[in-house]
Simulated assay, not measured.
Amino acid sequence: MTPDGDAPLGLRERKKRETRVALSRATIRLCVERGWENVTVEDIAAAANVSVRTFRNYFAGKAEAVAASHVERMLRIADELRARPAAEPLWDAVTAAVLAEFGAPGDQADQAVAESPHARRWRDGVRLMLAEPALQGEIVKANAAAQGELARAVAERTDGDAAHDVYPKLLAAVVSAASSVAVEHSLTAEPPTAVGPLLAEVLERLAMGLRAP
């Protein structure tokens, strides 16, 4: 324990975050593999090796658990952005943080994986899952939370105020939109395309007109 007592709280929060991630991933995997209607909370709890009560402590239902992955991904991007060198230009730092999470542009081997039968089945399952009406509202809420977290990280790098300044909010919204476009295109493109190269292309196009303050 540190003198100010912060370490135990940090450990608890980290373990809670890990549990949220495990539950969210288990929910997504089962829903993609079995179909939305064929997965129960009991199935998810068993897959994550926790009790149903534990699942309920974190999520109200499957939709919230699935959407939580988007928030967690943006938390990791925000963490990576905070860890980037202070002297690095903002957009370069943002791009590196995003691609570290989604995957940087790959080689032909990455594309081969994207075109494999297993990847195609997974892609089709994700597309069906995301079309579930029950998921739409949760995705909207998750997106708002994700953008807020990234805006705070941007504000720290620009000495701004995430609550009152426009730029951190704008940049966070742009990154969120770019990610959504790349993911959606990756799920529908023919032939299949890995999300990393798509997102790198989108961010590069944005870099031409989005200047840091």
Rank of each mutant, 00 (worst) to 15 (best):
A112H: 12
E132F: 00
L128P: 05
A104C: 07
L130D: 05
R121E: 14
H118I: 14
L130F: 13
D110F: 08
M129K: 03
Q111G: 10
L128R: 10
Q108A: 15
V126W: 03
P117A: 09
H118T: 15
E132W: 04
A109K: 01
V113G: 02
A119W: 01
M129F: 05
A134P: 00
I139F: 11
R120Q: 13
D107Y: 03
I139W: 11
P105T: 14
V113A: 09
Q108L: 13
V126G: 00
A114C: 08
P117D: 06
D107R: 10
D110L: 13
A131G: 09
I139R: 15
A112V: 01
H118N: 12
A104Y: 14
R127W: 08
V126C: 08
A109H: 04
G125S: 07
A134R: 08
Q136N: 11
E115S: 12
A119M: 11
G106P: 01
A119R: 07
R120E: 12
R121P: 01
A109P: 00
W122G: 14
A109W: 00
P133E: 07
Q136Y: 10
D110C: 09
E138A: 00
H118G: 14
G125E: 04
D110G: 11
P105Y: 10
A112D: 11
E132L: 02
A134T: 07
A112C: 12
G125K: 01
P117F: 00
I139D: 15
Q111S: 09
Q111N: 13
A109T: 01
A119K: 02
V113Q: 08
L130N: 02
Q136A: 15
D107A: 10
P133A: 06
P117C: 00
R121D: 15
W122Y: 13
A112Q: 11
R127I: 03
S116G: 07
Q136S: 13
D110W: 09
A114Q: 05
L130Y: 07
A104G: 08
V126Y: 03
V113W: 05
A112R: 09
E138L: 00
L128M: 08
G137H: 11
V126L: 12
L130V: 09
E132H: 05
A114I: 06
H118Y: 15
A134N: 09
W122V: 14
P117N: 04
P105F: 03
E115T: 14
R127M: 10
L135E: 14
D124A: 11
R120V: 06
R121F: 05
P117V: 06
E115R: 12
A134I: 04
D124L: 15
S116P: 07
L128T: 07
S116H: 09
G137D: 14
R127L: 15
R121L: 05
A112F: 03
A109L: 03
E138K: 00
M129R: 06
M129A: 08
P133C: 04
E132K: 07
H118K: 12
